[in-house]
């Protein structure tokens, strides 16, 4: 199964990858290194001071406030990943199999929604969910009391916004994976005596796993970094890591603190992905989709 790939020994090939290597180094590795270095400095009167000490790190690990926000960010990102995956799988399945006639139209609508600026969409949700907004207006018309739905400016509202904005990633990757499944495999499953539901769990879901996992990874990474939804829909009552980092840099002008918090967030994300990747590798060690 392992490919005998010797291309990494090819000198010309190495040379041709050099520009990409330079770009990666210049725009990814170096800034990351600088961020790491920055976290060992201090500030005085809104100015950066080159102190080379661990004061900031002591601060970051010592304050309950930071722990809480990091923990909340991690939980929100995991819940968001779980929700988008659970929602995206049936949506993608329906798009590819049951509504295949309209799948182009659905895709087009989704792309439109996806490309519309997130700020607009998020404020749209605020108008929709507001105590005197569209949803409550409609519910009042149906005989419910005023402000029947009161979720705005809560973590629930933040989650609604996050799931809404990130759902297309998982739908797209999952639908792509499902569209690639050979129709004969599904027929073979029916032929062997499986119902549609059984076929979904025996054939479709396992074969769509690469797409589902890719979508989950994308959503998780993006969910760790959301700042719009907690601010606009959560009302700033339960900030997440990205908002904290923004405040450190902009409002408090404490760059070393912002840098340290950034590093913490990256490490959390990397650890979770490594753990998930390890789990997936164990399950897929021998099978190849």
């Amino acid at each position: 199964m392992a490919m005998q790939d010797k291309s990494w020994r090819d000198g010309a090939l190495q040379l041709s990858t050099l520009p990409l290597l330079v770009i990666f180094a210049a725009f990814f590795v170096i800034p990351l290194g600088m961020t790491a270095l920055l976290s060992f400095q201090g500030t005085q009167y809104y100015r950066l001071v080159w102190t080379w000490d661990l004061d900031i790190w002591r601060d970051v690990f010592g304050q309950w406030h930071y722990w809480r926000i990091m923990w909340r960010t991690l939980v929100m990102a995991l819940v968001c990943t779980a929700l988008t995956t659970v929602l995206a799988v049936p949506i993608a399945y329906a798009m590819i199999n049951r509504l295949s006639k309209w799948s182009h139209h659905i895709t087009l609508l989704m792309v439109f929604a996806f490309l519309t600026d997130a700020v607009l969409k998020t404020f749209g949700w605020v108008l929709f969910l507001d105590r005197s907004g569209v949803l409550n207006g409609m519910l009042a018309g149906l005989g419910f009391g005023p402000g029947a739905v009161d979720v705005l400016f809560s973590p629930t509202a933040t989650m609604i916004g996050m799931v809404y904005n990130l759902l297309p990633y998982t739908i797209f990757t999952t639908a792509l994976s499902m569209a690639r499944i050979d129709r004969d495999l599904v027929l073979a499953s029916y032929d062997a005596g499986a119902t549609r539901l059984r076929t979904f769990f025996e054939v479709t879901l396992p074969l769509a796993r690469p797409g589902i996992l890719a979508g989950a990874v994308l959503v998780f990474v993006l969910a760790l970094g959301v700042f719009l939804e907690p601010k606009v829909m959560g009302g700033g009552t339960s900030p997440m890591a990205a908002e904290l980092i923004r405040q450190s840099f902009e409002t408090r002008v404490n760059w070393p603190l912002g840098a340290a918090l950034t590093i913490v967030l990256i490490v959390i994300g990397a650890l979770v992905l490594a753990a998930a990747g390890g789990l997936a590798a164990i399950r897929m060690r021998r099978s190849k989709a």
Binding site: D182, D184, L185, L187, A188, S189, Y190, D191, A192, G193, A194, T195, E202, V203, P206, L207, S287, K288, A289
Partner: peptide, 21 residues
Amino acid sequence: VPASARPTRMVFQKLALFPHK
């Protein structure tokens, strides 16, 4: 009667073996 309930079994042209099993 759906395919799943028929007393027939098919051998497919491209075999259609489940790659993950």
